[in-house]
Design a binder for these strands. Structure first.
Lengths: 171, 171
DNA sequence: GCGAGGTTGTTACAGTGTATCACCCCGCGA
DNA sequence: TCGCGGGGTGATACACTGTAACAACCTCGC
């Protein structure tokens, strides 16, 4: 995907590895938590790493299962709490149309909107920002007399890689 | 809300009545079904009427409850089937961020995107279209090399009426 | 009449998310 | 040192959302 998209799925030749480097995410989290005086606990770190490490956006129950081991069970409710925390910090986003979670690839400015590009073939999700959309949406809302607090924009379709692969397959 | 917004919540002085005239919706449905040679059954009509008549977007279970009477129980699964049917026809939309359903106020062209304006105060949902957003989103997607199939855009905030009411209340 | 296809009823179940309470850990002040 | 308080986690239970599978029905056309 293009350079402007802060690609998280990189150039995957379908050898998906990770969508965001877990180490980098953890560093950002630590910095943020220190700044805000909140705790970055082991569970929160593990949940963040798991989200960052998965190729496709996991659900809360996926994460719970992935973090559980013979000696230690992580209940979904704990995962939800950690996810809420991470979303509060802007390190994770929720994909409403999938009930799934993605690591946030950006250092957002506050209130900045993002566009999620959800590939229906490979299941990957890319995240991008768009000033044009931002301004045109602002105009539309103003015309409607609506004061936005928060918005979600999710597009389902085919990412460039999958489209090319399909075209090659059909040839 | 503005004239361009195909307002469904009209000028509610919080005496909400209906978001779309059920009779009109039913007429459109009948026409559409005849044209496509599919059945517009009693259940489908009742579900459509119930969605059209409620001030705030109902969930599937709300509808099931509302349509059930002492002598006749409508199971959620039946409601889901009717809703799927109505969505197929473009008569109803699903609000992903709320797990709720709204009647579609437009006669859409196919593939036309809509913007949902969800008021967090009164819970009403308005629906509008925006050519500007459409084109700017198209540009963004093209730049990302992404082929869209379908997109959702939901904005949560305060509608004009509620904002004015709040301002008046604070004064 | 009778078969075929579509619609609905019914039950069961999977998936998603929240409420509640108990416990633990750690820091802080008496 | 003890007790206290607050945030975090564990555990259970539950509510809400959505789907699978199958039986019964209804209608339409032959």
């Amino acid at each position: 995907m293009g350079a402007a998209t802060h690609s998280r799925t990189h150039d995957h030749g379908h050898s998906h590895a990770c969508r965001a480097d877990p180490g980098t995410m953890v560093s950002r989290a630590e910095t943020l938590c220190r700044a805000r005086g909140v705790q970055f606990t082991a569970l929160r770190r593990e949940v963040l790493e798991a989200v960052a490490a998965s190729e496709r956006p996991p659900g809360a129950y996926d994460l719970a299962e992935r973090l559980s081991r013979p000696g230690r069970r992580v209940a979904p409710v704990s995962v939800y709490r950690a996810l809420d925390f991470l979303m509060e910090l802007g390190l994770v986003h929720r994909i409403a149309s999938r009930n799934a979670f993605v690591p946030c690839a950006h250092e957002h400015g506050a209130g900045e909107n993002v566009v999620f590009l959800i590939c229906r073939t490979c299941g990957g999700v890319d995240e991008t920002t768009s000033p044009e959309v931002e301004t045109s949406l602002g105009q539309t809302l103003a015309r409607a007399g609506f004061t936005p607090a928060h918005s979600i924009l999710e597009v389902e379709g085919d990412c460039g890689t999958c489209r090319r692969e399909r075209a090659a397959g059909e040839a």
